[in-house]
Design a protein around this nucleic acid. Structure first.
Lengths: 190, 190
DNA sequence: ATAAAAGTGAACAAGATATTCGGTATAAAA
DNA sequence: TTTTATACCGAATATCTTGTTCACTTTTAT
């Protein structure tokens, strides 16, 4: 790929990321982005169809990164039977989110995280699914439960950010597992 | 208050409500609203500073209504010691939400429910607080827990709407209580 | 060296927000 | 009933944002 393309693409991503840590997504204009990225208007639209597509790609990159690492851990360890695994993975994800603090804060900060959250939830659903397969013991529908777990995770992240990421990932993972019924069994055996 | 004011205000609210059941909040323009409400542009801005303020007021009205009814039940019954109360109240709220289906769907439908959800959560926090006072038994911070419960409720509503309100309020209240640890104790004694 | 690809900036159309202003209709007070 | 205040009207306007077009320049690859 052309070196110029990479550079502009990176410049746009970087500018967008910077802006997200300052103001919320809806308030950011394309003008803001191209000013900060120092690229032409035409160039922006050559790379990204709309501002939404840019966000979409940023989210994809971010989650791909965060979850691939988490899933690497999963593949190097034999995960299916180790009882503390959910805790390990959750902690990992939280660490990676904290590393990307700058990006996610702007997206989640109070308003307009819909797109981000939809992405996030999608990844989480996929992520949590393996832990759910044999948990039909609860008297609630499967998709209600998975929705509840993923939603609770996201909700926790928002709480975390509002608290300015004071809580450690380990402690947060504890809280999460303590409050989610499906995983309670696992954690209480420790 | 001037009769004309009431009429236009009501017309705007009604138009807005109608539009919300057709298209999502962000897609609705002020032009749409004043066309449907059949009022002048100036009039709209005389009543509401911005479109956001209109939504804000609509939300306030809605929640005021929903929760006041729920709290009425609370005051007529002796709530503090009846074990099935949480279930009764939650069911009530769900019924009222279903009655206002038309309004909330447009706001929550996929995008841009931030404002609504913030309001909702605020009310829910207040609502759930009395049930929390003596529940420090869990090994998670109090505000984490209340955030988790309110968040789970909202998350459930979104699941419900996506499912086109198929589930009955009673069943949904069951699911909710089954999945929320603080209330598990109550429900399991039945 | 040259053709292909990428970037530039200015201009433009379309659509939305929010304000202004002179004039009209209506409600409440005299 | 007349008067007065105020709510409403609608057209015009300034401003902002998005997304496109076009003629031109720079960079990369062969």
């Amino acid at each position: 790929m052309d070196r110029r393309q990479q550079k502009t693409r990176q410049a746009i991503f970087h500018a967008f990321s910077e802006l997200l840590s300052v103001k919320s997504y809806t308030k950011i204009t394309v003008q803001d982005i191209i000013d900060m990225a120092n690229v032409g208007r035409t160039t922006f639209y050559a790379h990204f169809e709309t501002k939404d597509h840019l966000l979409r790609e940023l989210c994809t990159d971010l989650f791909e990164h965060v979850f691939s690492k988490a899933l690497n851990v999963e593949s190097t360890h034999d995960f299916s039977l180790t009882e503390s695994n959910p805790h390990v993975f959750i902690t990992h994800i939280l660490y990676h989110l904290r590393d990307n603090k700058k990006n996610i804060i702007g997206i989640l900060n109070c308003e307009s995280g819909e797109l981000f959250l939809r992405f996030f939830k999608q990844y989480l659903n996929e992520f949590f699914t393996p832990y759910m397969v044999n948990k039909e013991c609860h008297d609630v529908p499967y998709d209600f439960l998975i929705n509840h777990i993923s939603g609770s995770f996201i909700n926790m992240i928002q709480w975390w950010i509002k608290d300015d990421l004071q809580t450690t990932p380990e402690k947060l993972a504890d809280y999460f597992l303590a409050v989610i019924p499906s995983f309670c069994d696992n954690i209480k055996e420790n």
